[in-house]
């Protein structure tokens, strides 16, 4: 039996359910209702409302990616040093929370953040000024950081744990202080993990429509919301596909960057 044939089911499946559907998005995006070729659906991104939704999504997702990176890096370093078991750590921050539905978890932030919510009640008790971020972009950023932080921690952790301790010891022996060692050794060696983490946070944050629906009231529309509405409410699949193509450009750009910087797939998250 030719063992190569064992890959046939996967290739068939991926062809039918991954490649063909993506081609269909391009087909719908590049045609109008009569089936004639047009760039109109893609050019529609430049209309003020769409541009605003895209800009808002880019702004909030970049911000939450940066916050995730700042929070995740020290966490990954601490977990690396403590030598905690990788599987138990991954389960704890990544798998276990997922068994509580993602919508419910995001929804729970409403209870925590509301004007009379848990956090504000606590703040009042200790006499601090209250937060007023529900239904603002701030709440959406918080929701993004909350949901996607594990996607930043894991790839960084995976690269840090593989750094040869001797390299760090050598740097210290040769007279580098801890800060220099970090800047010259640890940080450069962890770049693939950082890039992979950025991709894994930025893409879902950029394209989310659910976090903005739940935590942003219905006041703030992100590009994800616009596309979702085109498909489920307005029913203009051509426009929805056209806008999705624009979105995919961002994703492809992101994928190329991470492929170039992480050739060995070292930082793969899972």
């Amino acid at each position: 039996m030719n063992k190569k044939l064992l890959s046939a089911p996967f290739l068939f499946w991926s062809g039918l359910f991954i490649i063909v559907p993506l081609l269909m998005v391009f087909y719908y995006g590049l045609t109008d209702k009569t089936g004639a070729f047009t760039f109109e659906n893609i050019a529609a991104i430049s209309s003020p409302e769409h541009l605003k939704a895209l800009w808002e999504a880019v702004k909030l997702s970049v911000l939450s990616t940066i916050i995730c990176l700042i929070l995740a890096y020290p966490l990954a370093m601490i977990l690396c040093k403590s030598g905690s078991n990788k599987t138990s750590f991954m389960v704890l921050i990544f798998i276990l929370p997922m068994w509580m539905n993602f919508l419910l978890r995001t929804f729970a932030w409403l209870t925590l953040l509301e004007k009379t919510g848990v956090i504000n009640t606590l703040l009042k008790l200790v006499g601090l000024p209250t937060l007023n971020i529900i239904n603002t972009p701030g709440a959406i950023v918080l929701g993004m950081v909350y949901n996607f932080l594990p996607f930043m921690v894991l790839p960084i952790y995976n690269v840090l744990i593989k750094i040869d301790k001797n390299v760090i010891n050598a740097a210290r022996d040769l007279g580098a202080n801890p800060f220099q060692t970090f800047m010259k050794i640890t940080l450069p060696l962890s770049v693939p993990g950082i890039i992979s983490g950025i991709t894994m946070v930025f893409v879902p944050a950029l394209t989310t429509f659910i976090i903005s629906t739940i935590l942003g009231g219905s006041k703030i529309l992100l590009i994800g919301n616009v596309i979702e509405q085109e498909f489920t409410q307005t029913g203009n699949w051509h426009l929805g596909s056209g806008l999705s193509i624009v979105l995919m450009m961002f994703i492809i750009f992101n994928m190329v960057i991470s492929a170039v910087t992480d050739k060995d797939g070292e930082a793969q998250a899972l």
Binding site: F10, I18, I19, L22, M24, I227, S241, S244
Partner: peptide, 26 residues
Amino acid sequence: LLGMANIPMLNAEIVTGISLMLLFIS
């Protein structure tokens, strides 16, 4: 093969969702 496997992981969920919706419709 690895590239194919990576597409649904790296692509946005919303794009995967609508692309499958279009496929099932057609």
